[in-house]
Every structure is written in structure tokens, then in C-alpha cells.
């Protein structure tokens, strides 16, 4: 069983929801990424989504784009992201790490070689924004062969047929994009999300996380009541952006702790 699957099983047993924060590797610099990842765990993260910076992040809003630009300016690369994951694994053998990014750095590496290198580094899952299932059949096979989970997105525009397509190719969990738009956009329609999640869960047979547009403990708790996992990205990246470098680790841990507490109220922990 993959680290991601066993994480969700354990959470389910205790009636808790998964908290999945996102940070961009190399933001604000490569040296701080490992301490920030550990702060996420200390604050109560269940899974870490680690962003691989790309020069042209088409699906991201301005916050994560700026984080990508900072990371690339500091020389971050897919190879160095794996180095960071390797360092993380040396001190944390429990928390799953999902790499989230765009296709081209993987294409440049070579799909199969990357999948093997990611596994060796201790990566658990990959989410490639611009690889829809029908365009990455070989990559999906390579990811599976390496024993990794490939996480796919579903959107408010997705049809039920699409749920089934994505379920066939994906594993680990499904990332439901809670709104039409880019990361960090404003408003959430909780009623709509509440209608969609049970349909998706029934169709895909795996946990469903919701991301895009979750800004605070209140919205995290509302989403947690509907979904299996809450993904929070832009707001976390803003926290890092707004903090002086020496305070970033501490501030991030406190922020994540607040989200954790709100989510755990749902389980009565």
C-alpha cells in the first residue's frame, strides 16, 4: 500500500480529514524549503504538495507564479526538488510528498527516468497540471511501474464520463478544483461543492480533496465537512511571501496549526 493510501486509511479510522498544504520548492530560496516542509508537518499537515517551479505556470494565479519566479531565479530545478525530497525523507519517513507541476520539466528529463528518480528520492505521488489522462498514457504507466500514485484533477466543468476516465488513470486521491479559475482565486460555492463531492467519490472510489480558493480556517472547515482532504496553496504561499525569511518557518507552522485545529473540530478531536 502506498504512503498516500495508508495516510488516508489512518485518517478515515480516526474520522479526521486530510490537510494538504502546498508550497513551491525553492521559494523563497532552496535552503528554506526543507525547514518549511518540516514546519508544515509540525503544524499538522498530512500530505505535502511540493510545487515544482515552471517558467510558464498557466494554471496558477499571480501568487504561485511569483513563487515560481523567485524559485527559478534562485536556480531551483526538478533535479534539485528531488534532492530536497531526499533530504526530507531522511528525517521523515511517514508524511507523503506529492510533486505538483507542469509537463515540460518532466519531458526534458524523460518520463520514465524521472519517475524512477522520483521514487528513489522518496516521492509518493505526482500531479502534472497539463497532463490530462489521455495525453500521458506512457507516463502513467511509468509512474505506476515506479510504484507512485498519479493524482489527477477534476473540475466543476467535468462530466460524469470524465470522472470515470480520471479514476481509471489516477490513484491516491482526486484533486477537485473547487472553482473555474486559477489557483488563489476568490469565491467558493459550497453548495455546488457539496453536490459534486458525493458524485465524484462514488464514481472514482478514492478519496477526494478540494483545492483552489481555500483561504482560512473557516473555509477549510467548511470544505473539510464535505471532502476527504483540504488542499491549501496560494494562502500558504502568501504567508511565506509576507514573512521575513527568519520568521517564515515559525509563522507557517502556526498558520497550519490553525487550519489543523479547525479541521479536527469536525472529528471532535
Amino acid at each position: 500500500m502506498s504512503r498516500i493510501q495508508s495516510t488516508f486509511q489512518q485518517l478515515q479510522r480516526s474520522g479526521r480529514k486530510a490537510l494538504i498544504p502546498f508550497i513551491t520548492a525553492g521559494d523563497p530560496d532552496g535552503d528554506l524549503t526543507l525547514p518549511l516542509m518540516r514546519a508544515l508537518v509540525a503544524g499538522g499537515a498530512d500530505i505535502i504538495e511540493l510545487g515544482v517551479p515552471f517558467s510558464d505556470p498557466m494554471a496558477d494565479g499571480p501568487t504561485i507564479q511569483r513563487a515560481s519566479e523567485r524559485a527559478l531565479a534562485g536556480g531551483m530545478s526538478l533535479k534539485r526538488v528531488l534532492d530536497i525530497v531526499r533530504s526530507f525523507r531522511a528525517v521523515d519517513d511517514i508524511t507523503p510528498v506529492v510533486l505538483m507541476g507542469y509537463a515540460n520539466p518532466i519531458e526534458a528529463w524523460g518520463q520514465a527516468a524521472f519517475a524512477a528518480a522520483a521514487r528513489d528520492a522518496g516521492v509518493d505521488g505526482v500531479l502534472v497540471v497539463d497532463y490530462p489522462p489521455e495525453e500521458c498514457v506512457d507516463f502513467t504507466a511509468a509512474v505506476r511501474a515506479a510504484g507512485l500514485d498519479q493524482i489527477f484533477m477534476l473540475a466543476p466543468t467535468s462530466s460524469e464520463q470524465r470522472f470515470r476516465d480520471v479514476a481509471r488513470s489516477g490513484s491516491g486521491y482526486i484533486y477537485y478544483v473547487s472553482l473555474k479559475g486559477v489557483t488563489g482565486a476568490a469565491t467558493l460555492d459550497f453548495d455546488e461543492i457539496g453536490r459534486r463531492i458525493p458524485q465524484i467519490r462514488a464514481a472514482v472510489g478514492m478519496p477526494v480533496g478540494v483545492g483552489f480558493g481555500i483561504r482560512d480556517a473557516v473555509s477549510a472547515k467548511k470544505i473539510g465537512a464535505l471532502a476527504d482532504a483540504v488542499v491549501i496553496g496560494s494562502r500558504i504561499v502568501e504567508e511565506i511571501e509576507a514573512s521575513p525569511r527568519e520568521q517564515a518557518v515559525e509563522k507557517l507552522e502556526a498558520f497550519v496549526r490553525g487550519l489543523r485545529a479547525a479541521l479536527d473540530e469536525l472529528a471532535g478531536v
Partner: peptide, 20 residues
Amino acid sequence: ALGHFGQHGGVFVAETLMPA
């Protein structure tokens, strides 16, 4: 059918745009 010219082309976009 998916817009491939040999090894080139295709539909490499985020899920939200696939139905569009």
C-alpha cells in the same frame, strides 16, 4: 482525433479546459 500530428500537437491543458 486528439490533434496529434505524429508525435506533436495534442491537448495538454488543465482539466477545467478539457470540456471547453
